[in-house]
């Protein structure tokens, strides 16, 4: 009995949560978040291409990126898809294939974690560039499948 009511509570909570998702808030927030991911990642890339990469800036930038990457799954609440009527490049398949989408978000977090760990010990582009390519590959893998290519 207790279990049933707990399940009911969970279900009610999920419905409430879904109802609480305002796509006019969730979608711009997600796009701002992704932009911040892009800005942070570019900062790391620019450091690695610099004549003298700044190890401290690399350490901070990669930590920042890792923090952002961990937030990615939370940026896609149900109800914030293309059917919401708000302009978004997110494809509906994000919510119909949640397991695969989630795996791609996890792959990103794993790659950003490895990069942040690497930057703790080294500011050497020879060490960090392969890790950066891993992160870029994780961005691309998700965008190719779950983002419409407009521009």
């Amino acid at each position: 009995m207790r279990q049933i009511s707990f399940a009911a509570l969970l279900a009610a909570g999920a419905i409430l949560l879904a109802a609480a998702v305002d796509p006019h808030v969730a979608i711009p927030a997600r796009q701002m978040g992704m932009k911040q991911v892009g800005r942070t990642f570019k900062g790391i890339n620019d450091q690695l291409h610099a004549a003298a990469p700044d190890a401290k800036a690399l350490k901070e930038g990669t930590e920042q990126l890792d923090k952002l990457a961990k937030q990615v799954p939370g940026w896609f609440p149900a109800g914030s898809g293309p059917d919401s009527g708000v302009k978004t490049s997110a494809k509906a398949s994000i919510w119909t294939e949640p397991a695969d989408f989630h795996a791609k978000a996890v792959a990103l977090a794993a790659a950003t974690h490895a990069l942040a760990e690497g930057a703790k010990h080294s500011g050497d582009p020879a060490v960090l560039t392969p890790l950066v390519r891993q992160v870029g590959g994780a961005c691309k893998a998700c965008h190719t499948t779950y983002k419409t290519q407009d521009s």
Partner: peptide, 13 residues
């Protein structure tokens, strides 16, 4: 620059 941070022009920095 591209969205994925993989490709960029040489002056994008």
């Amino acid at each position: 620059v591209d969205e994925d941070g993989l490709e960029s022009g040489p002056l994008s920095y």
